Computed example of a mutant assay.
Amino acid sequence: MSILDHLGLILIALVANGLSALAGGGAGLLQLPALIFLGLPFPVALATHKIASVALGAGASVRHLKENTFDAGRLVLILAAGLPGVIIGALLVLEIPPRAGEIALGLLTIGLGWYSWRRPQLGQATVTVTSDWTHATTGALGLFLIGVLNGSLTSGTGLMVTLWLVRWYGLSYTQAVAYTLVLVGLFWNGTGALVLGTLGEVRWDWLPALLIGSFAGGYLGASLAHRYGNRLVKRVFEIVTVLTGIALLLPGP
């Protein structure tokens, strides 16, 4: 690839991951199709995208950790419940044709955006949630199932985690996006990238440009989220979920 091609990859990653860091997911909406359009087969594009998306989590983490608003118990819960699902999903994607799952996930993702849009006050402030054994178990199971989707499919699962944290745990959108990008972007995607990178094929010479753009986009999007607050984050979330869902429903190349 030429210098211009690498600059193009940086720009694609910057825009895709900047929106993702602001909305709490959806980097694959632009980045994955772009890699396929540039000539990578789907499995190679997916593995390369997963590895690059770890830089999104790293960039966002640098910004979000400055705010120091994380609860240690919730951090452990998201990791413990989600990581086993991510590993299972990453192993499944190498064996199962993904098209049916993409269609189902596309419809569900559009539904997430519609659900958020129909509830104007959702995620605009933190809500105290009374947790018992049933609530805790259901919450962990939800994170596990989203983890399976995160490991096996292409886009939209970060958005699902964001809305799950808002709806089930009472977080504001800004708080939920911070958890999603630090834990899902860095640890969930890192685990999936490790599995796919080990068992699959990666286009390593494209990664430096993608990593630069992803890190910068993650930091920029996280900064905008803290600057403009829950209202902007909610609107961007709703737009990105619908566009991601539509992209998943469209037939692949």
Rank of each mutant, 00 (worst) to 15 (best):
L4N: 07
D5L: 12
H6Q: 15
H6R: 13
L7V: 14
G8T: 05
I12E: 05
L14R: 02
L14M: 04
A16K: 01
G18V: 14
S20D: 06
G24R: 06
G24M: 06
G24Y: 03
G25W: 03
G28N: 07
Q31H: 03
L32I: 08
F37D: 15
L38R: 13
L38E: 08
G39A: 09
G39W: 13
G39S: 09
L40R: 03
V44M: 15
T48F: 02
K50S: 11
I51V: 10
S53Y: 12
A55R: 02
L56R: 01
A58G: 15
A60R: 09
L65D: 11
L65I: 07
L65G: 13
K66H: 13
T69K: 10
G73E: 10
G73Y: 06
V76K: 14
V76R: 14
A80S: 02
L83Q: 00
G85V: 07
A90I: 07
L92M: 12
L92I: 15
L94G: 11
A100W: 03
G101F: 01
I103N: 11
L108T: 08
G111Q: 09
L112G: 08
Y115V: 06
W117T: 13
R118Q: 14
Q121C: 01
G123V: 08
V129M: 08
S131W: 15
W133K: 15
T134A: 13
H135T: 12
A136L: 08
T138C: 07
G139L: 05
A140N: 05
G142T: 04
L143N: 05
L143V: 09
F144D: 05
V148A: 08
G151C: 04
L153S: 00
L153N: 01
T157F: 01
T157D: 05
M160A: 13
V161E: 12
V166P: 13
R167Y: 12
R167I: 11
Y169V: 03
G170S: 14
S172K: 10
Y173M: 15
T174C: 14
T174F: 11
Q175V: 09
A176D: 04
A178D: 08
T180C: 09
L183T: 06
V184I: 15
V184T: 12
G185V: 01
L186H: 14
L186E: 11
F187G: 01
W188M: 14
T191Q: 10
G192Q: 05
T198R: 13
T198L: 15
L199T: 12
L199K: 12
V202Q: 08
D205W: 08
L207K: 06
I212E: 10
I212V: 15
G213E: 07
A216G: 03
G221R: 01
R227V: 00
R231M: 05
V233G: 00
V233S: 00
R235I: 09
V236H: 04
F237T: 05
I239P: 06
L243F: 11
L243V: 05
G245I: 00
G252R: 12
P253N: 14
